[in-house]
Nucleic acid binder design. Sequence first.
DNA 1: ATTGACATGTAATACGTTACATGATTCC
DNA 2: GGAATCATGTAACGTATTACATGTCAAT
Lengths: 182, 182
Amino acid sequence: MSLKHALLGFLSYNSMTGYQLKQYVDESVQHFWNASLSQIYPTLSQMEKEGLLTMEVEYQEEKPNRKIYHITDAGRQELQRWLREPTNLPSVREAFLIKVFFGGTMEKEDILSQMNQYLKLHRDLLAMYQGPVLEKMQQEAANLERDSFFWALTLEAGINLEKAWIEWLEESIEKIKKYATD
Amino acid sequence: MSLKHALLGFLSYNSMTGYQLKQYVDESVQHFWNASLSQIYPTLSQMEKEGLLTMEVEYQEEKPNRKIYHITDAGRQELQRWLREPTNLPSVREAFLIKVFFGGTMEKEDILSQMNQYLKLHRDLLAMYQGPVLEKMQQEAANLERDSFFWALTLEAGINLEKAWIEWLEESIEKIKKYATD
DNA sequence: ATTGACATGTAATACGTTACATGATTCC
DNA sequence: GGAATCATGTAACGTATTACATGTCAAT
């Protein structure tokens, strides 16, 4: 499970609560990872049991109490071990490409409608990545030049991949219009 | 679950066994879907219960008996319904990009080693997609022109995406060599 | 003799989503 | 008055992987 390692990564910058971790994940790595709160909370308490984190309860007036998690030495070691470990390709499950694969059993207008819908989804994603996300991230990391360098790299990965999708979708739509019967 | 729908797709071409389905999946859609036999067998018997398939036992001499699955009208209807249904983006979990995101906490040589390993994985994939896979698929579909048109499209998607990965990895490796400290 | 292809499955475990449950405060 | 933010969790369910289990035949 690398949710564990993503959380260790964020907690290596700063101690924080599960709720805050969710916000960081959504803001910064959401284009290649996501996690719900109902997955984060149990994972954190399990990590505490494993000795990767320690937990401290902060009693707040006028707001709910919160549990602040701190990374331990064992946690830092585990993060570093994982960062250096060889990485396998993730298993892909692209339902969309299954539909294209069986596109021969669909009418031309139906498959074109699918392609156009998916094109819109990817165009929206690209627009989002090219929007204010990067600047926001760079601001936050103003005093962490080296970090923001790598953050920018991951964003560029997302942008490149989205561009590849969009290119393929646009070309394929033209091909289907020209060559596909029906 | 779209494993169900992928299986329906293949069974809409031909009746076959779970073992054969596994082979088709591995040969033709393995770059965007994969399924183990221990997932396929229970799924098939569940689909039979749901009335999407019927099952026929073939008693073979000198070989194990086999269960041949046939798609029903309900199965064809469900496949067509699913093919036309809007498709959501799959949730991505790219552990590799998490490692890059926290690359700031790694030494330069360690992150470069990661990048080069991943580059090799993607180059191998690209080589595979550009190898004899396509010709093989087109041969099998010799009498199914329209099908092989869409099969080729999905392969091109894989090739485009791999090229995008490789480009990003190559550029990023250069950037890290030039700009990253340590 | 042993590996690989053929053929089917169960059980345990891991990972992830959705629904359910609670409760305060702040902003519109 | 109602929605959004802050804050934490449990339970049920769905999906997927890994390990375990069995057995034949053909080729090396």
